[in-house]
Structures are given as structure tokens and as C-alpha cells.
């Protein structure tokens, strides 16, 4: 792998470089396979729990499902654009509008990925949070704000700051939640999911930061999603 001077310690930020990401680091096939696993797991969780939600109308199940739909959408936007760039040589079209296209893609990705993590928290805290009327709007506003900050200020420190804030929010929320069972590893699964999701976002925003650990991040993230899918399918049985 050749690290060009342009790549070293240079925040990618918005623009074409973000959507192109690091296809070259691990290879396009690995990128697509990783995206496929994450999107497939998320959609299987979303559609697999549809009947449980339709029958019960339980709000916790609703927000849990939505969280995985947002995960799928976030990764879909990231990977679909990469796929278009690599497969159909749309670089020429993008060159005409590189700034806006890259920014829009980054904005959508940041918006959905932040929303996914916030909805995962919402699913376990809905009984408390739903006492306030406008929680949903608030979560969307936070996600929009983070996405907006990411595209306006192309700053490495800001990207790391946003993800640390999100991760601390997850930790604090999960820690406050009273544990129903003594032996429930859900806390660790959600913490790991949030941690690796933050690393995923940083990996896209600042490619030079984790280029030697990218495969490890991908493997760990895939494992966490597969673990959650396993837990879901084990619980819903033949639904």
C-alpha cells in the first residue's frame, strides 16, 4: 500500500474524497462485502421483527427496528456511492459537481448513522423519553446538527469530538438504565456497537487515522451485527 503525502494526516472532510473513501486500502471487494453484511444484517433485523411490532404495537420494538433501518440506510448511501464510482466510472460526472455531491453524501451518511445510534438508545429509554412530547424531533435535530457540522467544518478534531460525545451519550444512557437481568450481555453489545460505529464514521471521515486497523474494525463491526442478528433470530424463532 502506498501512502501518498496528500493522504498523510489530512482530514478528508467533505467533497469527492469522502465518497471515494479508501477503496484502495482494503480493496473494493472487501468494502462491498463488509457493506453487504451490515446492510443485510440490519434489514434482516428490521423485517424479521415486523410481525412482532405489527401485533404488539410496542414502541420499544418500533424504535429498535427503526434504528437498524437507519443503520442500513447509512451504509447503503456510503456503499452505493462507492459502487457507482467504481463500477460505472461516474467520476467524470462527479467532477462537474464534486463539492455538492460529496457533501450531500456525507450529510446523509452522518445524519442516518447518528440517528441510528440515537434510536437504539431511544428503544431502551422510550418509557422515560416519551414523557416529553418532542423527543423524536429532538433526535432528528441532533442528527441534522451533527451532519451539518461535519460538512461545514471539515475539521478532524470536530469529527473526533462529535463521535466521543455520541459514544459518551450511549455509555451514560446505558449505564443509567436499570438492569432487569443479572446475566445480560446486551450492555456490552450496545457499547461495542456504538464504539465500532464511531470508529467506522471516523474511518470514513479521516481515512489516515485507522488505515492499518481498518480490517480489524470491519471484522469487529460485522461480528457485532451478526451477534445482534443471531440474538434477534433466536428470539423471534420462525417469525
Amino acid at each position: 500500500m502506498v501512502v501518498t503525502p496528500e493522504k498523510v494526516l489530512k482530514p478528508v472532510g467533505a467533497g469527492l474524497r469522502v465518497v471515494q473513501g479508501q477503496i484502495g486500502v482494503l480493496g473494493f471487494g472487501t468494502e462491498m462485502f463488509y457493506a453487504f453484511i451490515l446492510i443485510a444484517c440490519s434489514l434482516m433485523i428490521y423485517f424479521g421483527t415486523r410481525e412482532l411490532y405489527k401485533l404488539s404495537g410496542h414502541r420499544g420494538i418500533k424504535y429498535f427496528r427503526l434504528s437498524f433501518l437507519f443503520f442500513a440506510l447509512a451504509y447503503f448511501f456510503r456503499s452505493f456511492i462507492k459502487f457507482l464510482i467504481s463500477s460505472f466510472q461516474i467520476k467524470h460526472i462527479l467532477k462537474l459537481l464534486p463539492f455538492s455531491f460529496g457533501k450531500i453524501t456525507l450529510f446523509i451518511f452522518m445524519y442516518f448513522s447518528t440517528l441510528a445510534i440515537l434510536y437504539l438508545l431511544y428503544s431502551i429509554k422510550w418509557k422515560e423519553w416519551d414523557r416529553t412530547k418532542y423527543v423524536k424531533y429532538f433526535l432528528h435535530i441532533i442528527s441534522l446538527l451533527f451532519a451539518f457540522l461535519a460538512i461545514v467544518y471539515q475539521n478532524t478534531t470536530l469529527y473526533i469530538g462529535i463521535n466521543i460525545v455520541l459514544f459518551l451519550l450511549v455509555l451514560q444512557t446505558l449505564y443509567q438504565k436499570p438492569k432487569k437481568k443479572k446475566k445480560n450481555n446486551l450492555f456490552f453489545i450496545y457499547v461495542l456497537l456504538s464504539l465500532f460505529w464511531a470508529l467506522n464514521i471516523l474511518d470514513i471521515l479521516i481515512p489516515t487515522a485507522f488505515q492499518y486497523f481498518q480490517l480489524l474494525i470491519y471484522l469487529a463491526s460485522s461480528f457485532i451485527f451478526l451477534l445482534i442478528l443471531y440474538k434477534v433470530t433466536k428470539n423471534i424463532g420462525s417469525t
Binding site: 421483527t49 412482532l52 410496542h58 420499544g60 420494538i61 424504535y63 429498535f64 428503544s123 431502551i124 422510550w126 438504565k177 438492569k179 432487569k180 437481568k181 445480560n184 446486551l186 440474538k231 434477534v232 428470539n235 423471534i236
Partner: peptide, 9 residues
């Protein structure tokens, strides 16, 4: 019920 319990929803 089991699903809600398992995922603490």
C-alpha cells in the same frame, strides 16, 4: 414478551 425482555425494550 421474551424479545422485549431480552433487548430490554
Amino acid at each position: 414478551v421474551h424479545f422485549i425482555d431480552e433487548f430490554e425494550l
